[in-house]
Amino acid sequence: MGIKDLSFKKSLWVFHLSAGSCNNCDIEILDLLTPRYDVERFGMKLVGSIRHADVLLVTGIITKKTKARVLEVYEQAPKPIIVIAIGACPCTGGIFASGYNFAGPLDKVIPVDAYIPGCPPKPEAMLAGVMKLLAPPPPEQANANK
């Protein structure tokens, strides 16, 4: 087990960054904290600063004005960090891709580990996405990596 696997084993701390979203994904992320979904039972919690975080959640399209800020937040993040694009907007630009203030999908700005598409993705989908990312790889793939 490498240091990266060890650091993501449990109690993920999450920082949420809204680049230029319509609020839906942000609300669904907050919804995860509230009684019905309650991700805190997995040790996950939202933190106030990127410097405390293991995971960076990005919602919304990257506008020309937020692009530099997204880069800066990514640079401040302690490495290794998992970057997850939540919703159709950071994955591809979605419905706003033809706008004049669109600066490209998230993976053109910073490296992305997981994409959770949907408009907005349901809270269950977000949980499933994170779990899939963290689950140990299937045996054949693990062997191939050796």
Partner: peptide
């Protein structure tokens, strides 16, 4: 920071499609 230029995007969609843009 959150300016997405929606009014301009709407001008390039048909009347029916604009519903899906304004909803977002």
């Amino acid at each position: 920071y959150n300016h997405r230029g929606i009014e301009k995007i709407c001008e390039s969609k048909t009347f029916e499609q604009v519903f899906f843009v304004v909803e977002r």
